[in-house]
Design a protein around this nucleic acid. Structure first.
Lengths: 201, 201, 201, 201
DNA sequence: GTGTAAGCGAGACGGTACGTCGCGTCTTCCG
DNA sequence: CGGAAGACGCGACGTACCGTCTCGCTTACAC
């Protein structure tokens, strides 16, 4: 969903990278300052000096725009740990996952994007695709563990993955309890016991 | 958050229950027909023949309105099972929880309310309070299990509760995988093993 | 075409006369200052502090708005002279007609309205109706003259009327030659000879 | 205002006559299909495959463009009759003038150009110049009649010319009554009586 | 029973943002 | 180096809802 990567058509002025960057920066700034609901195309345009029509040319909605603005933040930190054990891998992953709580702007972004996905079906598809890429990282850890015999081959990997992300998002969205990287070990421990239990007893 | 029942001062016309019911019904109908994003105060007013000012008198926002419109649906079916074992209790609860997937209108409502909670801080507090009441039902089951010695007293009840609701909401909101009451047993089984494992063996 | 004269429906806040007057005044001011092309709904709204939506509620287009803004100016001065002779009546009328040249704002308005009528079919109908009312004033003078036997009953009254207004508008719109009330007598003289000649002598 | 025919400077590609012709054709087609208001530079460019920048290089405004697109239509049919009498000359001229009503596209063009002249001062000058050339044709007929002694030397030729064109434009622009070449004789008759009257009695 | 004050439908109001259109200017690349 | 393609900043469009504010009823208690 990076604004169409320009298949290099012949003819026509090339797209202004600075306009693109200015708009993304403005969106990020507004989001961090006042939250997702305060991000408007009009506001981004006036803050960034990028014309509204230019923004619409490259992004379909403010959700698209914010998603791209935050993609690096959202993406960069997703490690694919390889500690040799499932527990180690998951602890590393979850600790990293929970680390978002130290970056309020990222939290705002994630919460806003999830909200937008509820309100706009077109964006939901985009968002779902992104979610899937993150789920696959964890699924890979689990499959590796299955290969190693750490957990049974019959494990419901999908649900196990959702058991990692589900409580995270739930706390992020509802805000009833804090999330802390320090909790990663305890949380994973509880999940792990469940998975291992099935195998061996 | 039922609109405060009017402390009955002297003079003045009493609140029209029919107006209240009409507005709630209209909100529910629009929600079911076109989704949460299509619910607008203006639309509810014109469909229900209830004046906008009347709606604003009794509800602060469309989220408040929808929350009340759907409260009975959302609430009614939350059982407090008592089967004698934690596994039985949780299975009953989760099966009921997942049953919402059979009622698309309720799913739309839940998703819309969650979205609104991300966008409106005032509503978020209201929503969080409602979420807490549901979490407490499950927490009670867990505490009862601790009392019975089924799971250790050191269990992280909060995270255990979030492990029940988290994956549910995650799938509901992202829509990457279906939810089915028939999965309740398997899901709870996985969770249970984790909790019991901790106790010792 | 005065903004719907409000048939006094039951219910609803009464329309704000001050908003109406403010919008009309702003439109007139902009017109006089910068010409018809510079009149925009957005500009009128911001200058008058009347919301755009309010303006659209009461007028369909800027042409409607300007037409109403200038209606008094346009209308007030159209006398229905009765001097006893056709020549006298026409001279009085034409002198008054040409007097618009002393009021540049009115000229701008008339020219702008005529332009708009060329570009917008809906407005054209409105404009035509207004033109007709003015034509009828002159037609009445001519019919009175026919009754008095001043000119023959077979006179092409329609063309005669257009011979009064046509050159006026032509000079107004093209601007190739000035118009002056002092010319009224000469112009009418030429027209009159044509009409009387027909009668025969 | 025909786009200057490329003075053939040294070096570089010669101006594309086909581009010019394509643009003019597209403008004419749009005008005939949807009216003057629907003619936009953007639309002409996309329909004709001529770049917007090329259009701007050769014409200052859409009015310029349309004026050139229609110049042949507008101009071609203006005869300089010489029947020996003023009445004959004028009848021939006016009949030709009114014949435009049989060509709706020309009427749309004329009306659109007049509208544009009201809204754009730069174009107004251009338009006025064109109008003058047409007025001079009629003025010449009148001066010839004066030389022949048909009408007095004191005749207000300017007003007489405007009496020919004024009613024509007035009906064309307002549309309250039809114009028909068959009316030429009657209309000229009425005008002629006025003019002759002055001389002789 | 009557007065009075709140509730109520209606809908106008000042606003904000939407997504689109066309403007006139400006690159960029191709022939 | 002319011309097509088309991106750019810009300004206005007309629409949809927002939340607030009169209006002129219509209740229903308190006297």
């Amino acid at each position: 969903m990076p604004a169409t990567p320009a298949p290099r058509r012949t003819g026509g002025r090339t797209r202004s990278e600075s306009a693109r960057a200015d708009a993304l920066r403005a969106a990020a700034e507004i989001l961090e300052a006042d939250g997702y609901a305060a991000v408007t195309i009009e506001g981004v345009a006036s803050r960034s000096q990028v014309a509204k029509s230019t923004i619409y040319r490259w992004w379909n909605s403010k959700a698209d725009l914010v998603m791209e603005a935050y993609q690096h933040l959202i993406t960069e930190r997703m490690p694919e740990p390889d500690t040799g054990t499932l527990a180690g891998d998951l602890e590393a992953f979850v600790a990293e996952l929970y680390r978002v709580t130290h970056y309020p702007a990222r939290m705002k972004a994630l919460r806003g994007l999830m909200a937008e996905a509820q309100l706009d079906a077109a964006f939901a598809a985009l968002f779902r695709a992104w979610v899937q890429t993150r789920r696959e990282t964890v699924a890979a850890l689990l499959h590796r563990a299955i290969d190693r015999g750490e957990i049974p081959a019959t494990t419901d990997v999908d649900y196990a993955v959702d058991s990692v992300f589900g409580p995270f998002w739930y706390r992020l969205l509802v805000g009833h309890l804090p999330l802390d990287p320090a909790d990663a070990s305890a949380h994973v421990g509880q999940l792990m016991h469940g998975l291992r239990r099935a195998t061996g007893r």
